[in-house]
Design a protein around this nucleic acid. Structure first.
Lengths: 126, 126
DNA sequence: GTATATGCAAACAATTTGCTCTCCT
DNA sequence: AGGAGAGCAAATTGTTTGCATATAC
């Protein structure tokens, strides 16, 4: 089953690449529908699943909801309990180090998701 | 609203403390219902939520489902793509190290969840 | 005794699926 | 032309909730 590049897919991927928040499917739909008025939430989900499979984007759960991220490199996600925001913690060497340690421990890692709850700088001043 | 210790809660907590897998609510219900035939899935969920809030247990998502763990100390969860099992990767110092690094990076961490997909030792020989 | 927790069934929210039609290639 | 994808609506899954009754304190 060869995959086909559709307008919808292009828009979704573009949006995720450009946007550096970590929107959920509904937020993505809300945005993309502005340019493609007929696109449905189901289509957004189907495309997101495809993009994740192709490793063009990554996904992770917060609460009950999947969030999507156009940045695929190793990084850490921080969920600020005060601002509610999901922030990127760019520490690729740290993730690399964790990866190595886990491997030494006898588990061959593929994907590593590190999700931290706590407070970001902005959140602390609230 | 002061909390009350019920038979149901005791059984659920006991089960999670003793069992070192990482069952989901349904699996817990399946087990606990053997001793408490009238307990419902809703009650299991209510108690699990309470226990998580009280920090007697921890929870984390894999795929669409919450999994629960009676072990609350810092550790890493490995999801083996071959066996399907969730294994504990006991590396408390590593998690401590990650915690420290994240703090230095400007995010004050509370809970850290590290979830790795890959293959465990047993999975590799399959 | 009183209020919190249970059991039951119904509600919910996020995500998926079946079907028909569209439109890439 | 042929088939992957879109759109729509309905289904499914995991989890939560409202209400009457049971039970812990």
């Amino acid at each position: 089953m060869k995959t086909r590049t559709t307008t919808q897919q292009v828009h979704i991927l573009q949006y995720l690449r450009q946007k550096h928040s970590h929107p959920c499917a509904e937020a993505i739909h809300k945005e993309v529908v502005k340019q493609l008025p007929t696109i449905t939430l189901a289509t957004v989900y189907r495309n997101l699943n495809k993009l994740v499979e192709q490793e063009d984007i990554i996904s992770f759960k917060v609460g009950n909801t999947y969030h999507y991220d156009g940045k695929v490199g190793d990084h850490i996600h921080g969920i600020c309990e005060n601002t509610g925001k999901i922030v990127d913690i760019e520490q690729p060497e740290l993730v690399q180090y964790v990866r190595k340690k886990i491997h030494h421990h006898g588990f061959t890692p593929k994907n590593i998701r590190i999700i931290v709850t706590g407070t970001c700088k902005r959140g602390e001043t609230q």
